[in-house]
Design a binder for these strands. Structure first.
Lengths: 229, 229
DNA sequence: CTTAAAACTTGACACTTGTCATTTTTTCAA
DNA sequence: TTGAAAAAATGACAAGTGTCAAGTTTTAAG
């Protein structure tokens, strides 16, 4: 349970920042950031931003998890990414000038800071390390999405589920994976019923263990071999 | 038929450049670019770069078309993007320091210039317009790929084909679409046989017209309504 | 603690889509 | 022009996956 009263997270001591894109800031810049950012406690399932709205700044996750998703024609969510502590969310659309083409929502209670667009763009102008970090991050995500597309197009649901569980392990570690069946299905790109059946198979094959919603991976090697390269 | 003897494309008069990311260069920079770039004629199906190799620079398409693709587990290509005149290819991996995670190959004979990595990065350091253009482009592609993923996950092959044909129209205009069935299938993310059957349906429905490999869209509205939003 | 709502699970079934085999057409080089 | 190779097309069939409907379990609010 997060401390709701402790509204303000201090950048200079934020453990999530040091390993993030904002890790390369000098102390002046951290002080400046400190003065300009706001910090908020979010309950589970609260929206950070909606598809179609215009970006006002970036979100830094201090604590918690956020799903980034897009709705298809029939309103079904496709989860593009699940962000955890130390990640920044919502900066892409800021550069293009376009409205968000994805939405973001907390998956659990979270502490998330907010840096206004102008402040962030100013920092990017003056800080080469930050700027290069952002460009690198954008490139890396582009690469991830090329793989995502290829997986969607060519792998079976079983293979994609194995792949997704490996990713989710990285997101939730050292905790067990804790995601609703529907969200998991929307991440894998399948129907909830199909996902449940396949999870059952994995249980019976001794690959995973499930207690209510908490899922633990027992045999990672097996998952890797199912997921393919 | 391109003029193979005319090896050197002049940046200052290149019509493809003016509408590209390099459109914002000042005349000094264009002169500098001119001195540092090389220009090559490519036959159909020639490789620009391979998945796994390290980027040495960026490719500017003066004339022709290039497919950017990734191979899945069984070696099947998934086409991520088809680039035409005026587009730049292969710059993403340059920023991340990682090897290419995609490959690029000409779809037809092409004139393509090459700017070495160092020269390009220098230009980016000194030219704010170019730099912002690149960041914007990366963001835009990220957005496109989120939609691509969602389409893959939620649309039927018929819907995806309609969507793909609309995109391809934009790439080939004012010429008819001219792509092998296999490439088209690898773009849509389906088996070649399935693609052929669906094209046949579209023909019978009067939506498209096909002469050997050249495909013309007769009823764009219908395609749009099939593709969905 | 109780109860309603939400989430999860299971079963039955149909249909889209991929695979394999074969034939036809097109391309392109000799 | 001709022949071989590549590309395109068609048919048959099975498997994977989505949908719908009905049940069960878990969650969370009163």
């Amino acid at each position: 349970m997060l401390d709701k009263s402790h509204k303000h997270v201090t950048c200079s001591t934020c453990m999530s920042r040091s390993s993030s894109l904002l890790g390369g800031l000098c102390s002046d810049e951290v002080t400046n950031l400190e003065d300009h950012k706001t910090c908020n406690y979010y309950k589970k399932s609260q929206s950070l931003f909606l598809e179609g709205s215009f970006p006002r700044g970036v979100f830094c996750i201090n604590q918690g998890k956020v799903k980034v998703f897009k709705r298809g024609d029939e309103g079904k969510e496709q989860i593009i990414h699940i962000a955890k502590e130390g990640e920044m969310v919502g900066f892409r659309a800021m550069f293009s000038g376009d409205p968000y083409n994805v939405a973001a929502e907390t998956l659990e209670e979270s502490n998330i800071c907010f840096i206004a667009k102008d402040d962030f763009l100013n920092m990017m102008d003056t800080n080469v390390t930050l700027r290069n970090g952002i460009i690198k991050e954008l490139s890396k995500e582009l690469s991830d999405r090329a793989s995502f597309i290829t997986n969607m197009a060519q792998k079976s649901v079983r293979e994609r589920l194995a792949f997704a569980l490996i990713l989710l392990k990285g997101v939730y570690e050292p905790e067990p994976i804790n995601l609703s069946r529907e969200d998991m299905a929307n991440f894998v790109g399948t129907a909830t019923e199909t996902l449940i059946r396949l999870l059952k198979d994995f249980k019976e094959e001794g690959i995973i263990e499930v207690h209510t919603r908490k899922l633990t991976i027992l045999n990672l090697d097996k998952l890797v071999s199912i997921a393919g390269k």
